[in-house]
Write a protein that binds this DNA or RNA. Structure first.
Lengths: 244, 244
DNA sequence: CGATAATTTGATGTGGCTCAACCTACGTGG
DNA sequence: CCACGTAGGTTGAGCCACATCAAATTATCG
């Protein structure tokens, strides 16, 4: 008998994403590639821009983000990661990162040494292709963030961000489509949406007043998903999630 | 003796990028993977969002772009491609694209069937890793675009764009660091920088008046690269180009 | 040489920023 | 159990960067 999924560390990897799933064989190989499981404190930096990396980080539980900062030290988030994301698999072909990676909440992560990914590249081309695929999902999200910042007005940018994170969380069973836990402060959200915290606050009020969604005590409640998606010009196809 | 580089179609692939170069062996294998060489008309659409793709496009000569459009049909460019770029290698693991791809100028491209990339994945892990690497360079550029749109003011956004394209062109021998050919209209540039053509025009004037750079008749002249980079908070390390 | 696309300029409106204050929740130590 | 410090959130007033609209000017090209 095979090991039940729930007992595996990486059971959320590519979970809920359409297309070919990992074969049980590949999943076990990936599982075996894990070198170490670690707990990280909330609000701690995992990797700094430019430093050489020799392992990649898979996020088992918690929330992390990737960001770059400007001259004044103000952050621009370029990605928010949730359970099931291979946070910095980018670092494997790149060897060093162009941005910082930090936790938002306390996190449980699995560290995978790059030497073991080399082995997967050599011996398991289909698994390697899935790993590649997962990094390109990130790239697709990056593109959507470019679109969001470049073409949408503030309310829609905020709405779009919530639509994306909801879809990601739903894929890994952390959202029921109505509400979900999101431990980001308004400053975090502002850094993701490219606006000031003050203005973000006003946009949240606007979304609430329009009856679309609200957020209190780190809990997001979606009132009218269809309307929210419409306002935000959100089309989830770029996330490759099932049932969307 | 080996075939001289100049006679090869893909001689600009990853050219000027630091780190391991393609081995001659790998280069020949990649060359052999080309199925067809095609000429494309200026301002023509190559691939539309959502359609299944079975080959990827390598750009031999010319300028192409990737973009997404909003509800009103206004474009947001998410990438500009130059000679040496594997434009839509993303389509290989993803199988369909989340954006459109079009030419800016007339282009010469090499089409590589995905079946042949499958073969490379199976038999040539080091080459496969270089291909993966090249898609992650795109992702790194995406992140920089997010930063640009999210954190920089208009003049700097424009300057940053020119810094990036100059560095890319220099890597493949199409810029001497002083001036280069760039066949984009001001509307194209506005679509890349997330602003209106009118405002872009004013920002170009500003850059010129400050003695940083100018553009006329599709030719960009850099007057003071150091100052331009400083104004634009541009650090080329994310491009992995040599000598920067 | 006329048609069309691209660039340039001016006038005016507004979305989002800045600055500053205040309020609320929560954790810590006395 | 209260006092206080601190981080997060909320609100208001005024301003500026960029958008919008409209028109004129200059390339480009068949």
């Amino acid at each position: 008998m095979s090991i039940p999924q729930s007992s595996m560390l990486l059971s959320d990897f590519l979970r809920g994403r359409g297309r070919e799933r990992l074969s049980l064989d590949d999943r076990e190989i990936l599982e075996a590639a894990v070198g170490e499981v670690k707990e990280l404190k909330a609000r701690s930096t995992l990797i700094e821009k430019g430093e050489p990396v020799h392992f990649s980080t898979y996020l088992i539980e918690g929330f992390m983000c990737r960001y770059m900062d400007d001259r004044d030290g103000d952050r621009q988030l370029v990605a928010v990661h949730v359970a099931g994301d291979f946070v910095d698999l980018h670092g494997y072909p790149l060897k060093r990162l162009d941005h910082d990676i930090a936790t938002i909440t306390a996190c449980k992560v699995a560290l995978v040494p790059h030497s073991r990914i080399d082995k997967i590249m050599e011996e398991k081309p289909t698994l390697a292709k899935q790993l590649w695929f997962s990094t390109l999902l990130d790239a697709a999200m990056h593109r959507e963030w470019i679109f969001r910042l470049g073409r949408l007005e503030a309310v829609s940018r905020v709405g779009h961000f919530f639509c994306e994170i909801e879809a990601k969380l739903r894929a890994v069973g952390r959202s029921d489509g109505q509400s979900f836990h999101l431990p980001m402060t308004q400053s975090d959200l502002a850094e993701a949406c490219g606006m000031t915290p003050v203005h973000l606050n006003r946009m949240l009020r606007e979304l609430k007043e329009r009856g679309l969604m609200s957020i209190t005590a780190r809990k997001v409640s979606i009132r009218d998903m269809a309307a929210l998606r419409k306002l935000s010009e959100f089309d989830p196809s770029y996330l490759f999630v099932e049932g969307n």
